Amino acid sequence: YFQGQLNAMAHQIQEMFPQVPYHLVLQDLQLTRSVEITTDNILEGRI
Results as ranks from 00 to 15, higher is better:
23 H>E: 11
43 L>A: 06
12 Q>M: 13
40 D>R: 15
41 N>C: 10
46 R>N: 05
26 L>Q: 04
34 S>F: 03
27 Q>V: 08
18 P>K: 06
9 M>D: 05
29 L>A: 01
22 Y>W: 10
47 I>S: 02
21 P>T: 05
2 F>D: 15
30 Q>T: 11
44 E>S: 15
8 A>H: 10
43 L>T: 07
47 I>T: 03
38 T>I: 01
12 Q>Y: 13
17 F>R: 01
15 E>Y: 12
28 D>P: 11
15 E>M: 15
3 Q>R: 10
35 V>T: 06
26 L>S: 02
10 A>E: 01
2 F>Q: 11
32 T>H: 06
22 Y>P: 05
3 Q>E: 14
27 Q>R: 11
39 T>V: 15
30 Q>R: 13
18 P>E: 03
44 E>K: 15
23 H>K: 08
3 Q>W: 07
28 D>T: 04
18 P>I: 03
46 R>M: 06
44 E>L: 13
37 I>M: 12
30 Q>G: 07
29 L>E: 00
23 H>L: 09
6 L>Y: 08
37 I>Q: 11
35 V>K: 09
29 L>W: 03
21 P>S: 08
22 Y>L: 10
2 F>V: 11
13 I>E: 00
42 I>R: 01
41 N>M: 02
45 G>A: 04
12 Q>H: 11
5 Q>A: 11
39 T>Q: 07
2 F>N: 15
3 Q>Y: 06
21 P>Y: 05
5 Q>K: 10
46 R>H: 06
36 E>V: 09
31 L>D: 07
10 A>Q: 04
27 Q>N: 09
40 D>G: 14
20 V>D: 02
26 L>N: 02
14 Q>N: 11
34 S>I: 04
7 N>H: 15
16 M>V: 08
46 R>K: 10
9 M>K: 05
14 Q>D: 02
3 Q>C: 13
14 Q>L: 14
19 Q>T: 10
4 G>R: 13
29 L>T: 01
29 L>H: 00
5 Q>D: 14
12 Q>N: 08
46 R>S: 04
34 S>A: 04
24 L>F: 07
43 L>H: 05
22 Y>K: 06
41 N>F: 04
14 Q>Y: 14
38 T>R: 00
11 H>A: 13
35 V>Y: 08
5 Q>N: 10
40 D>N: 15
34 S>C: 05
36 E>F: 10
36 E>C: 11
32 T>L: 03
41 N>A: 03
9 M>S: 04
9 M>V: 07
18 P>S: 05
17 F>I: 02
41 N>G: 02
16 M>P: 00
18 P>D: 03
36 E>T: 09
4 G>N: 11
3 Q>P: 12
19 Q>P: 02
41 N>L: 02
33 R>H: 13
21 P>C: 09
4 G>D: 14
18 P>A: 04
43 L>E: 05
32 T>C: 05
33 R>N: 11
8 A>S: 09
43 L>Q: 08
22 Y>H: 06
3 Q>G: 08
13 I>H: 01
39 T>K: 12
35 V>H: 04
38 T>V: 02
13 I>G: 00
46 R>E: 02
2 F>C: 11
40 D>E: 14
10 A>M: 07
5 Q>H: 11
10 A>C: 05
43 L>P: 00
18 P>H: 03
25 V>T: 03
26 L>D: 02
1 Y>R: 11
11 H>D: 09
